[in-house]
């Protein structure tokens, strides 16, 4: 093909561009946590500690060293995969991240799947029939989605489906206490239990997941539906769609092959932004459903100046952001042939 090499080069270039971003993230996460108020050594020593023992702890933690030395030590640890120990739990940060990040990813992933499953068809239908009842429904859902706070929708859903109807299991974490968590392979309970062939556990994990995912999904579907509708409306008014109409193409191929494939580009961008945003910001949902996610963990760590944990959180999130952006960029080049040709 004419521009395959152009695309490959473009993707390679994007990958290279990620490197300075990662270096920047490492530096910023280090400085940011050092700039936090509070003295971790004092916290670690406890309220009864004397100033000598605090000093002692400060030394063992390396906090008496000048910042550049601390930074080098930090980078060295990072390279070996050592993110330090959480002060409050005593666990290695990497282990905690390994346990908590999949929980958040699972929740956010399902929430996005749910919101896409609702928002994309809604947006497309609304765009193809402006001012019809679908369009009004779309507008209503979008407005409701952004204006209802997640803790409210979460509590309302729990009240309705758990307390009143009893359809949902108790909103207590990732799996009902009657079940054992599946052997860890990916960290996603639903997938792990399926891999282990344990349908019963998979069902239980999924049941736990549904309400928090819908809660979060109701919030995230608003920007996706809105963007889908706007992009589709713009494309459907375009000249090439008129050509497709004049050529007698069916409504189906006009909407999907012609309009949606062009309209999907801005939707993907929105999706990436929403994903990155909700991953770190779903603390409220995690609190309501006692979900052991990374958001609530980070907030707790922040409150007690547990900076190894905060640092690990910032680093993990930033790397995720970079990865997501990279994936979106690459998706873009795959969908839009025009992109490989610049440069």
């Amino acid at each position: 093909m004419m521009n395959t090499s152009g695309r490959t080069r473009m993707i390679a270039y994007r990958l290279l561009q990620a490197i300075p971003a990662i270096i920047g993230i490492v530096i910023v996460s280090f400085i940011l946590t050092r700039a936090l108020p509070g003295d971790p050594a004092a916290y670690f020593a406890g309220p009864a500690a004397s100033s000598e023992s605090i000093e002692q702890i400060r030394r063992t933690m390396g906090l008496d060293q000048p910042l550049p030395v601390q930074f080098l030590a930090y980078v060295k640890d990072l390279v070996t995969g050592d993110l330090g120990h959480s002060i409050s739990t005593g666990q290695p940060v990497l282990t905690e991240l390994g346990a908590r990040l999949p929980a958040s990813l699972e929740l956010t992933g399902f929430a996005l799947l749910f919101s896409m499953a609702v928002a994309l068809p809604l947006g497309i239908l609304a765009a193809s029939r402006p001012n019809s009842w679908v369009d009004h429904l779309c507008r209503f859902v979008v407005t409701a989605g952004v204006s209802l706070p997640v803790f409210f929708t979460g509590l309302a859903l729990v009240y309705l489906f758990y307390y009143l109807l009893g359809w949902a299991p108790s909103p207590m974490g990732r799996i009902d206490i009657l079940y054992l968590s599946p052997p860890k392979i990916t960290g996603f309970y639903v997938i792990d239990s399926l891999l282990a062939g344990d349908l019963e556990t998979a069902r239980a994990a999924l049941a736990q997941l549904i309400l928090p995912a819908i809660t979060l999904g109701l919030f995230t579907l608003a920007p996706i539906a809105r963007m889908t509708r706007a992009a589709m409306i713009q494309i459907l008014e375009g000249e090439f769609v008129r050509t497709a109409r004049a050529a007698g193409l069916s409504r189906r191929s006009m909407l999907y092959t012609y309009a949606l494939r062009n309209a999907i580009l801005p939707v993907i961008t929105t999706l990436g932004m929403v994903f990155s945003f909700t991953l770190g910001a779903n603390v409220l949902v995690e609190k309501v459903f006692a979900w052991p996610g990374i958001g609530s963990w980070a907030v707790e760590a922040l409150v007690v100046s547990d900076y190894a944990a905060v640092q690990g959180f910032v680093l993990a999130m930033a790397l995720l952001f970079v990865t997501i952006n990279l994936v979106i960029d690459i998706l873009y080049t795959l969908i839009d042939p025009r992109l490989g040709m610049e440069s």
């Binding site: 000249e239 004049a246 012609y258 839009d336």
Partner: peptide, 16 residues
């Protein structure tokens, strides 16, 4: 019956 248009580049699907 068929139709052709002004501005042919815009009349074609850009990514197909």
């Amino acid at each position: 019956m068929s139709m052709i248009f002004q501005n042919p580049r815009a009349a074609l699907n850009p990514i197909r």
